[in-house]
Design a protein around this nucleic acid. Structure first.
Length: 879
RNA sequence: GGAGGCAUAGCUCAGCUGGUUAGAGCGCAUGCUUCACACGCAUGAGGUCACAGGUUCGAGUCCUGUUGUCUCCACCA
């Protein structure tokens, strides 16, 4: 029975059907099974507000490829999906929606507002999940989690309380990064520094005793409203006399002291620095040392507050303008320089952040970092590529306390209650109803919520049931590989590692596979503002999911950025189509009773052994590459094998048998074709799951689905090195003949006789049919001696044969001689280099024997070739 | 101010722990209605592997420096 498939592969007809089949078959689901080794990946949870972008596509493709590979290898493969509540992003989204109704979150109040957010989450939160399914993601959807579901909330509460009890969480007033736009504190990691052009304003501060003045320089003149001192270096001779004196703060008209502190650099600016302890971390430190007053002058929205006198109510930028103008009018402005400097911006809204003193909750990092450093240093967790462990170490070794409180409503509310009577803070696993110290019931819960990353940090174990001691946790944890981009090593990876170590006593994964960013075709970051993003779903619609996945994986190596070219999708689609048609060819020729099973060894012919032997090598290499996370290299090898070895050669080599009358030989060829195709589909499946499954389902197969089929194994009994090299000899002859014919512009339709003189007649006898078919020979004759008459004869030389084709007038003797001379020159040059190596005693004695032997064989082969060529040259010259 | 990446064919990139006459895709050139595929087949052109040293029997691959380029980290007003 010939099986009919459409001539062109149509992914749109296949993908959703196949995905449904996998889901219905339960192949994505993993349960504890002591008879199998677990292999676990937790997916970086995308934001609930998220839309699938190329970065997600890359991330998911890598994970899916690994998980499918491991699943086929027989592991109990679990890929845990989930979604992140994304505090700021989500809250902003819902607030925007409210704004359209003319409302703010304050109009609704906390409770009603949160209801709105949950509504929104329930309505749109599944969108990104549906999009991930389009990518072929084989996650265990039954285990999908949300960072604010009950289990995660329990885990967060447990972690918060236990860290607090250990003294690793504290509340304190520190300089933190404040985003006046998002109206919340941020952690250090959430601040992005951008080099921005600005100014350096030089301002005159007169001495209170009228004996002179100092000039200070600042990039943020508006903060002078909160100045409580001026700092000079204690070793600065210029200012030795005035340390301890008072200056008059212009505009504010208030006396503030001059203090001496190493912080002031003598050779920067004038050497005098104004001190604003409430709005600069350094000034805050200096202020502590010198007892300077801390005067906060900006409110939470970035406007000047009641301490700013007449500037109260002005936005920070307006205030700056006004103050500069007033300084100038008052004669206090000495000069203005252009000055470009690093400005911290909010990673969410990209507005400038303000360092502000504020009471916030912090995680004490130093004690937690110790173990997190150790596990990476000792290799319990490895980064791929390794260089990122350096990035990680550098961060972890210098980490500062983590500001975890956020002035938002959407998130895990901090489980702390302040007693309104005694001021004691009660932190508790259960909601508190009275002060644990004085027993008062007059307590108020902390309004703030926790940093979103506080809950994502627990992801690898909270998704498996922690803090309960579940079987899943016991079996699947620690997880195996974490796959993510280098951009969130600090945000997430680092925090998962120290959290895992602290709360479970184990590093959460043994390998962190880092990938780069997907950029546009000009190398720019894809971004909404540039409008240069390419929608993965659009690519899937147009070229198929498999083509997109292959695009993202091929030619990419861990940790490196990649540019996205739609042309590459096209190329990969073409590859899918190539595979499709090769399969179509095989299926077309299959009989009803076809089986997927190799014929007995005696029936195998040279090309069969050749392809099987090469397949064997491929299996070994691809497996090794995948185990080393070299996905790009692995898939390239499968691609090349399918296109070159299988399609361009093996299929062509089997055609004579398939169209012959010899049913037995035809059967053998078909069985090998099917067997090899089946193995190739397995090797390709992790990368291109849809098309491989679709084809496999059409092939004779055992087992329900390719997704659950066994990964190919190297089979010693299928290594045929002699046949491999025999076949290669024949192929070399075929290529050489084709090349010469093309060069002479002989059309394929014009067949010619071929005479072969060789030291290996058996090889060419066996290969006769292939040469005839693939090198356009109408007859092939083996010679025992060089032909008498070389007139009109084209001579082609390979390493182990001389081929003669009578081409009559087409032969240009002069041109032929020229070619032979060139080939001879090349061969002699090569021989000289190889012989040079072998003549080097140090090479022979120090290089490994295999390498030396390979060189010896090269010598022999090249000598043969030269002898052949010289003979040809001599004969040709006679003409 | 530290740390790191990248520099290989016209373009975009592979090349794992040093040993191949250095590869792929796209592009280019020539020819092809070859009974799976023109989303194809065949053939070909195109590279002093940034530069300079070094280690080694041997370096695109390791080390040092230089140049160019990108990124991350860092409180210098």
């Amino acid at each position: 029975m010939a099986r009919e498939l459409p001539k062109t592969y149509e992914p749109q007809q296949v993908e959703s059907r196949i995905y449904q089949m996998w889901q219905d078959g339960g192949y994505f689901h993993a349960e504890k099974d002591e008879s199998k080794m677990p292999f676990t990946i937790v997916m970086p949870p995308p934001n609930v507000t998220g839309q699938l972008h190329m970065g997600h596509a890359m991330d998911a493709t890598l994970q899916d490829t690994l998980i499918r590979f491991k699943r086929m290898q027989g592991y109990n493969a679990l890929w845990v999906p989930g979604v992140d509540h994304a505090g700021i992003a989500t809250q902003i989204k819902v607030e925007e929606e409210l704004r359209k109704e003319g409302l703010t979150r304050y109009d609704l109040g906390r409770e009603k507002f949160l209801e709105r957010v949950w509504d929104w989450k329930n309505k749109y939160g599944n969108r990104i999940v549906e999009q991930q399914k389009k990518l072929g993601a084989s996650c265990d959807w039954d285990r999908a989690r949300f960072t604010m579901d009950e289990g995660c909330s329990k885990a967060v509460r447990e972690v918060f309380v236990s860290l607090y009890e250990k003294g690793l969480i504290y509340k304190g007033s520190r300089i933190i990064n404040w985003c006046p736009h998002c109206v919340t504190a941020l952690s250090d990691a959430e601040v992005e520094y951008v080099d921005k052009p600005g100014h350096l304003w030089h301002i005159r501060y007169p001495l209170a005793d009228g004996s002179g003045e100092v000039i200070v320089a600042t990039t943020r003149p508006e903060t002078m409203l909160g100045d409580s001192g001026v700092c000079v270096n204690p070793n600065d001779d210029r200012y030795k006399d005035i340390v301890g004196k008072m200056v008059i703060l212009p505009l504010v008209n208030k006396e503030i002291p001059i203090v001496a502190d190493d912080y002031a650099e003598m050779d920067f600016g004038t050497g005098c620095v104004k001190m604003t302890p409430a709005h600069d971390p350094n000034d805050f430190e200096v202020g502590l040392r010198h007892n300077l007053e801390v005067i906060r002058v900006l409110d939470d929205n970035g406007r000047v507050n009641e301490n700013g006198g007449k500037y109260q109510g002005l936005d920070r930028y307006e205030a700056r303008k006004q103050i500069v103008a007033d300084l100038e009018a008052g004669g206090y402005l000495v000069k203005v320089e252009d000055y470009s400097h690093n400005v911290g911006t909010c990673y969410r809204c990209h507005q400038d952040v303000e360092p502000i003193i504020s009471a916030q909750w912090f995680v004490k990092m130093k004690p937690l970092a110790q173990e997190a450093i150790r596990v990476v240093k000792e290799g319990e967790t490895k980064f791929v590529p390794d260089r990122f462990s350096k990035t990680y170490m550098n961060w972890m070794e210098n980490v500062r306390d983590w500001c975890i409180s956020r002035q938002l409503w959407w998130g895990h509310q901090i489980p702390a209650w302040t007693c309104n009577d005694c001021g004691h803070i009660t932190v508790s696993r259960e909601d508190a109803c009275k002060c644990e110290k004085c027993g008062s019931t007059n307590i108020t819960r902390e309004e703030d919520v926790l940093d979103t990353w506080f809950s994502s940090a627990l992801w690898p174990f909270e998704t498996l049931g922690w803090p309960d001691k579940t079987e899943d946790l016991d079996y699947f944890y620690p997880t195996d590989v974490l796959v993510t981009g280098y951009d969130i090593i600090f945000f997430w990876v680092a925090r998962m590692i120290f959290s895992g170590c602290e709360h479970t006593g184990k590093t959460p994964f043994h390998t962190v596979l880092i990938h780069g960013l997907v950029r546009d075709n000009q190398g720019r970051k894809m971004s909404k503002s540039l409008g240069n993003g390419i929608d993965p779903l659009e690519m899937i619609d147009k070229y198929g999911c498999d083509a997109l996945r292959l695009n993202l994986i091929t030619g990419n190596s861990p940790g490196n950025d990649t540019r996205f070219f739609t042309e590459k999708c096209e190329a990969m689609r073409n590859f899918a189509n190539k595979l499709w048609n090769a399969s179509r060819y095989v299926l077309m020729n299959l009989n009803e009773d076809a089986v997927n099973e190799l014929p007995v060894a005696e029936k195998l012919e040279i090309p069969d052994k050749w392809v099987l032997s090469k397949l064997n090598t491929l299996i070994a290499e691809v497996t090794e590459n995948l185990e080393k996370y070299e996905l790009g290299v692995a898939v390239q090898k499968v691609y090349d094998f399918i296109w070159d070895t299988y399609c361009d050669w093996y299929i062509e080599l089997t055609k004579a048998r398939l169209y012959s009358e010899d049913a037995d030989r035809k059967q053998t060829a078909l069985q090998v074709l099917v067997y090899v195709l089946d193995q190739l589909l397995r090797l390709l499946h992790p990368f291109m799951p849809f098309i491989t499954e679709e084809i496999w389902q059409n092939l004779p197969h055992e087992g329900p689905a390719l997704i659950a089929a066994q990964w190919p194994q190297y089979r010693q009994e299928l290594a045929f090195s002699a046949e491999e090299s025999h076949m290669e000899s024949v192929m070399e002859a075929i290529r050489a003949i084709r090349a010469r014919r093309t060069e002479m512009n002989v059309p394929p339709s014009k067949k010619a006789a071929l005479y072969i003189l060789t030291s290996k007649p058996q090889v060419y006898t066996e290969g006769e049919g292939f040469i005839q078919r693939l090198a356009y020979a109408d007859t092939v004759t083996l010679l025992s001696a060089e032909p008498e008459n070389l007139d009109g004869m084209v001579t082609i030389t390979t390493a182990d044969a001389k081929l003669y084709i009578p081409m009559g007038q087409l032969v240009d003797v002069a041109k032929e001689l020229e070619r032979i001379a060139k080939e001879l020159a090349d061969a002699r040059k090569f021989l000289a280099s190889v012989e040079g190596k072998l003549a080097n005693e140090k090479f022979v004695s120090r290089a490994p024997e295999a390498v030396v032997e390979a060189e010896r064989q090269k010598t022999q082969k090249t000598r043969d070739l030269i002898a052949q060529l010289e003979q040809s040259e001599a004969s040709m010259k006679k003409l």
